[in-house]
Design a protein around this nucleic acid. Structure first.
Lengths: 308, 308
DNA sequence: CATCAACTATACCTTTCAGGTATGGTTTCA
DNA sequence: TGAAACCATACCTGAAAGGTATAGTTGATG
């Protein structure tokens, strides 16, 4: 399979006609026919129903068509972005982040970065904590914001803050009617939703370890792929979920209650390559320090007293 | 450019060594070298710094590397999904939706669909109202949930409900301290954020027309790409935004106030191909009817009295 | 129902280009 | 400085993309 075949297929799918598609592609009809056949053979799936005029797509073909358009669009964007960075001599700063840090200061940091270094091309990539390590080592990202400590000597980690945890609860439930913080023990017998399901170890393991250390037994544990799914299930009254405090902002139709236990914390960790002394990393560190020095409301609400 | 070149580049970028990458790819080093050169020529950008051992990537090369991995991953998923639909004889139902319908019943509809038709492979595709029309006509999607009426005779639209609008306001502002509904006239002189910026016409034009009909003049109009961006800016106190009522759930760190003017409504529209009498469309209609007949809290809170 | 135009598949041929081997040039390290 | 490792260039081969010609299929029309 290659991009050429995707382009060919998209043209046929759009036109519903091999002959016209071939004209548009500026090739002859028989090689177009053969390329589509090769594609179908590789996939082992019929994409086109040829015993009708105009031809029709199978369900698999319809799915493939939409996906092919998306991939081709992605490739075009990729070319544009690469040319932009290369042609303008822009410097690239790639930032990996776990979804739950999106509401905990990251947007503000990016805005300040853009103000302080307008020549920077900033690429934001959502990825799990454990995925940031190889990405840093391979140079795919320059810094990562995660929540999991690791022991790779090639990657340096700085705990920026310890963020408090909250329980996300369906509305109109007994726990939701409590007004003060809950304890981990209060969660005994609840149906617990954890994320991310894989790869492991992940934030899910942090939550489960926290409960186990307190000998708290949930009624059931449901593992899901990502935090948005988890919160959606909470909203649908399918269970409760423990999330970092700042991630409350992600969803307004559930209740959130702080967890009062002192160990109910999740670190926000800055990862970068060991020995990296690039000036943009220095700038990032400075901007984070400035942000924390302002001690804004969002920082105070979600975290322990700031480390010196 | 083709996928082969992306795979080759990713191997070189990973290994930092043409010779080793060639071994891994099971080809000889010189053709690998040449393919990378062809890629660089096509892009017009140097991706690799060869005057160092190990070789290094340029910034453009680093960006390209990460993007290439993502595209290759997407292609693998696409193959898997296509094979799954084709091999299992699953039927495919593709649903296009605007982001703001995500909290207005769509997840529940999808869940009910899955229960009622387990043989269905459901593809959810976020796309703007105006993009749903060609997607329906081309068979890329089967149904669409949008908010814009159109006049294409090949696409049938059904207004499911008229959803009330709310103003999203930064916290601790004068308007946010009002407790009852606002009027459109109350928004005079505010800095207004509208979305989506393009393509037009869009929901942004609906909002602007509403204000103009009431001769309401915002201080400024800021156009952004999508609702999440808009709400983020509201949270950052950069302005206010008019959104459909159910989309309140998307963000909890801003205030929302209903707009009391009777014309402050946004239709939720079901689009499908004219004459489409497939049984899944019938099932969707039935399930929607059932959902509305239950008159759940979310429906009552956000909408006008249900149509018969 | 038969015919015909439009369209897709198959057969065979030509051209292009991907990949191979051999060798030259460059970088790094002892 | 020399040698090893590694990347680039040159030239060759064969695989595959694309071409023309023709056979087979569908659907509309009389």
């Amino acid at each position: 399979m290659d991009l050429r075949q995707l382009r060919y297929f998209a043209a046929v799918a759009r036109e519903r006609n091999f002959t016209r598609a071939a004209q548009i592609l500026n090739i002859a009809q028989p090689p177009l026919s053969r390329q589509i056949q090769l594609l179908e053979e590789e996939l082992g799936v019929a994409l086109i129903i040829r015993s009708s005029r105009p031809i029709r797509l199978t369900d698999a073909g319809r799915l493939f068509y939409e996906q092919a358009l998306q991939v081709l669009g992605r490739v075009d964007q990729m070319k544009d972005a690469t040319r932009r960075v290369g042609a303008n001599r822009n410097r690239l700063l790639s930032i990996g982040f776990v979804a739950s840090t999106l509401y905990g200061g990251l947007p503000l940091l990016v805005r300040k970065l853009r103000q302080n270094a307008p020549e920077l091309d900033i690429q934001l990539l959502e990825m799990l904590s454990i995925q940031q390590i190889p990405a840093l080592k391979e140079g795919r990202i320059d810094i990562g914001f995660g929540r999991l400590l690791h022991n790779d000597p090639n990657v340096t980690s700085t705990v920026l803050r310890e963020e408090r945890l909250v329980t996300a609860l369906p509305r109109d439930t007994a726990l939701a009617r409590e007004t003060g913080p809950l304890t981990l023990a209060d969660l005994t017998g609840q149906k617990l939703i954890v994320y991310p399901k894989e790869p492991r170890p992940s934030y899910a393991d942090q939550v489960l370890a926290l409960l186990q250390d307190r000998l708290v037994q949930p009624a059931e544990v449901l593992e899901v792929r990502e935090i948005q799914t988890a919160l959606g299930l909470v909203a649908a009254e399918s269970g409760i979920c423990i999330i970092p405090s700042s991630a409350r902002q992600m969803r307004s139709d559930v209740e959130y209650r702080l967890i009062g236990d002192p160990e109910a914390l999740s670190p926000v960790i800055l990862n970068h390559r060991a020995g990296d002394n690039s000036r943009y990393l220095g700038l990032v560190r400075k901007l984070i320090g400035d942000m924390y020095a302002e001690n804004p409301a969002w920082l105070e609400a979600n975290n322990l007293p700031r480390r010196p």
